[in-house]
Design a protein around this nucleic acid. Structure first.
Lengths: 135, 135
DNA sequence: CCCCTTTTTAGAATTATTCTAATTTAGTTA
DNA sequence: TAACTAAATTAGAATAATTCTAAAAAGGGG
């Protein structure tokens, strides 16, 4: 069942499966809104804001979710990261689209060559505008 | 001369060439440190912090510089963007390496196909760790 | 060299995020 | 299943990066 899957996800990453974490992870998995801590708090109002921040930090630390903090609203947005993907941001609307139709292996290899590091992950954001916008 | 080049860069982007903007742009072009507003203010202490923030915002708006705000220090870092490039971040040290050995055209095309948008730019950050770190 | 708009500035204000320290809980062990 | 303990949660205060305000200064077109 879903609850068991959520527990497994948390525990396999070394995190205790608390009510709050299960709720927040479920929220992120079932919403495509790339929410902020505050947005989550509005919907999960029984969970303290401090816990929402703490939990999001933990989920980021273990790689279950990622942060998008390049929007112009000066807030961190969070995104469930079940499968690697990149983001396309509509600069006109600030809408974030998830996409995965690109193989990052060549980019990883280029980065390895340029830096000598062992590559562990990536954040890619592509910016665009509606094509029918004149000029 | 350098000063004239800086004026041209600013004016060709529709920005008045003030002493403060020339100083800050010169600072960004001659430092590889990906500085924060505060770091710039330490070195250019005659310029008010508000102006440094204002100027950085303007330079970002017109595309002369870009923001990196994914480091864990909760501060925005800025980078002169004379030529398109991507960033490799050493997660152990938070060092940022600029690299350009990757052709983004296929990625742009993938993003266009996925979103239908006219692609205008990108931010790519690749994360890595020193290869000699055991484990 | 005016004039007018834009820019700069100091300091106050804002607010997202972090911290604190006391309470509760998950989950392991007996 | 009861006890235990390290980890998690919480309310509220604190922090600090960034933004705002409104008054003074300056760029550059004419």
């Amino acid at each position: 069942m879903v609850d068991q899957t959520l527990r497994d996800i948390l525990q396999s990453h070394g995190l205790k499966a608390t009510f709050q974490r299960l709720s927040i992870l479920d929220y992120l998995m079932t919403h495509e809104t790339h929410p902020t801590a505050e947005m989550i708090h509005v919907d999960l109002s029984s969970i303290s804001l401090a816990t929402i921040y703490n939990t999001l930090d933990k989920l980021v630390d273990v790689g279950i979710i990622i942060v998008i903090d390049t929007l112009k609203d000066d807030k961190r947005h969070y995104d469930y990261y079940g499968e690697p993907h990149y983001h396309i941001i509509n600069s006109s609307t600030n809408e974030i689209i998830d996409a995965d139709n690109f193989d990052v292996a060549p980019l990883f290899e280029a980065a390895r060559q340029a830096s000598g590091l062992n590559i562990t992950g990536f954040h890619i954001e592509i910016y665009g505008v509606d094509p029918d916008q004149a000029k």
